[in-house]
Design a protein around this nucleic acid. Structure first.
Lengths: 216, 216
DNA sequence: GCGCCGCTACATCGAAAGATGCAGGGCGGG
DNA sequence: CCCGCCCTGCATCTTTCGATGTAGCGGCGC
């Protein structure tokens, strides 16, 4: 079964080169070409390719926005291709739902390999991008220890609700209003929460709630 | 210039196979072999290879912990290799500072390619891992709006320091101590920050600092 | 039934927090 | 040189927090 590819690239010469590379592969079929983002989205919805090879810089609609639309429609896997290794492009494309991000300085082999990888649902990144992504992922050592997790588990349901409100940045009065209790009661709960979690202020409780993904 | 590799793998047969694959490459040199994690760390510190090929499951010291020690010592780039594609292994290894994570079902080509990639300081992940990493990265759409970003940009350097301290959960007194200013001054800064960012309490400022990745 | 626990409520009090006004010193641009 | 901005400091005052004690009420297990 061949992999159906849509090539979206505004520079005709580059586009022709890409198409030529892909046509040389027996398992790849170029089903369409787009010269701008709008055309890319339109053709992706119409042709339903397996993979869209998407340039970032394109007229009328940039590649990142086009990627977002194609992915939102579930039309295809998107492999983003660009000349510039900018964080802005990388993160934008990945947040937009791209399955891969390659730089144009790559070999033909790596490109077709990337297309095959993306087509079967996996991800493919340029090596330099991979390293940065690992870096940004590894940094958040904001993992909370198990002893904190059990302390939170030791809270009563009501106290957890209050903690969530603290994590949302509410004052005692606002919490009282939202949970329909007197402000004095809220204070009681807050005090208990701080004591149980060994914290000294609601600010620390709010940060903890953030780290634990509590809040509303 | 050849790439010096240390192979850490407890199963002798697998280790032998890996070494054989690497020896077939003219630009790779296997400078050492380890059968457990402790030996891997010891040899990495002693031999200072370019790359450590590290198995996850090993006796005496697991691969993730060994990776952490090797990376902490700055002894080598670590490429983790495992049979099982478990989130726990992947995230553990990457947080420990691994430059790459491959699965043992790969081709010999992909392995040597990965070693070369890691050796030059880039990252290399198995395709399925790449996709999951992209997924976990893209999800946090806790992106704050641009208007908030410029509001933060409008803070003075000193105010940003204070904001970072607030994000760390410090009280005004503690901030004053850390930044060597009077508590009254701290309060002044806090008030300015809240006014500029249109917030009503330091708790909200702390949450914002968290989202922006400020803090210490 | 009785005790324990969780939720609620209120009062009180000291400690933070936050707003506001005033002021001096350093520093760059007009 | 002077003006404006930033950082710093201090004082004052109100509000909010947080701790602590007391207490009523409903559910649950023994």
């Amino acid at each position: 079964m061949t992999i159906r590819v849509l090539v979206a690239e505004d520079q005709a010469a580059v586009r022709a080169a890409l198409v030529m590379i892909l046509r040389a592969e027996p398992d790849l079929e170029v089903v369409g070409q787009a010269a701008d983002g709008e055309e890319a989205v339109r053709l992706a919805l119409e042709l339903r390719p397996d993979v869209v090879l998407m340039d970032v810089q394109m007229p009328r609609l940039d590649g990142v926005s086009a990627t977002r639309q194609v992915v939102a429609a579930g039309a295809a896997q998107v492999l983003v291709l660009t000349t510039f290794d900018l964080d802005e492009y990388v993160y934008g494309a990945l947040r937009a739902g791209a399955a891969g991000f390659l730089l144009k300085d790559l070999e033909a082999d790596a490109l077709v390999d990337g297309i095959r990888t993306v087509a079967r649902g996996d991800g493919m990144l340029a090596p330099s991008v991979t390293r940065r992504l690992i870096g940004t992922f590894a940094r958040p050592e904001r993992q909370v220890g198990p002893e904190v997790r059990e302390a939170v588990a030791g809270l009563t349901p009501r106290e957890r609700e209050v903690l969530a409100c603290i994590g949302a940045g509410l004052s005692n009065g606002e919490i009282a209003g939202r949970l329909e209790m007197a402000e004095a009661t809220t204070k009681t709960h807050v005090s208990r929460i701080l004591a149980k979690l060994r914290l000294r202020s609601r600010v620390q409780a709010a940060i903890l709630a953030q780290d634990l993904g509590l809040m509303i």
